[in-house]
């Protein structure tokens, strides 16, 4: 199995480090031809405005949509924004997942936080399934999950922070910064 990590900007190496520990080959994707032969794609955290501008400049928007039509794709933080259909402002997105996302929903950097999250779906990769240590950095909130998008995790106040729609995954936090590889293993199941 070979997983691509969109490497236009952001924390792509952190995802590759987790994949390497899991014994999975990964490649950096910066141009459309880098998508050839991949079994899945991770869109990392970074600045969503920067990532979308670079994706447009280097002709990646349509190739990414076509790739996602046939493969598993996971967006973390900025990646989740990029996958969403609606961000409530004028910003280009892939528009794949039936979710409405609000950027910087928790405030500025001083409001960034760590917390423990219950994610029942992770029982698929870990029978004991303790709470997941989630890192939120200037994080977006998933305001609505429509159609076939199902909620995987929410904060105690009901705010949605992880969604799955078929083989697509969106998390507003950063599993690549936690010392816990369960979300990556969950994604690899979707990519198989």
């Amino acid at each position: 199995m070979k997983i691509g990590v969109l490497a236009l900007q952001g924390a792509f190496i952190e995802h590759q480090t987790v994949l390497e520990k899991l014994g999975v080959e990964s490649v950096q994707v910066r141009l459309p031809e880098h998508l050839d032969g991949l079994d899945g794609l991770i869109i990392p955290g970074g600045e969503s405005t920067t990532i979308s501008k670079l994706a447009i400049a280097f002709g990646l928007m349509q190739p990414l949509r076509e790739f996602a039509g046939e493969h598993a794709v996971w967006g973390t933080c900025a990646g989740a924004i990029f996958l969403s259909r609606e961000v409530g402002r004028d910003q280009p997105v892939l528009g794949l997942m039936d979710i409405t996302v609000r950027r910087n929903a928790f405030g500025r950097q001083v409001d960034s936080f760590e917390t423990l999250l219950d994610v029942p779906a992770l029982a698929r990769v870990d029978a004991i399934n303790p709470p997941f240590p989630a890192v939120f950095i200037r994080a977006p909130l998933i305001e609505k999950a429509n159609g076939s998008a199902e909620v995987l995790a929410a904060l105690p106040d009901g705010g949605i922070v992880a969604v799955q729609q078929g083989r697509w995954l969106a998390t507003s936090f950063h599993p690549e910064l936690s010392d816990d590889d369960r979300f990556h293993r969950y994604f690899l199941e979707l990519a198989r």
């Binding site: 900007q9 970074g46 933080c77 709470p131 890192v135 950063h174």
Partner: peptide, 22 residues
């Protein structure tokens, strides 16, 4: 569950999100 702000992981984390950027 509790939310912990201002941890070193969160501070360092924002810089990690800026990587590959200007």
């Amino acid at each position: 569950m509790d939310q912990e702000k201002g941890t070193f992981k969160v501070k360092k984390g924002l810089a990690q999100m800026l990587k590959g950027g200007v």
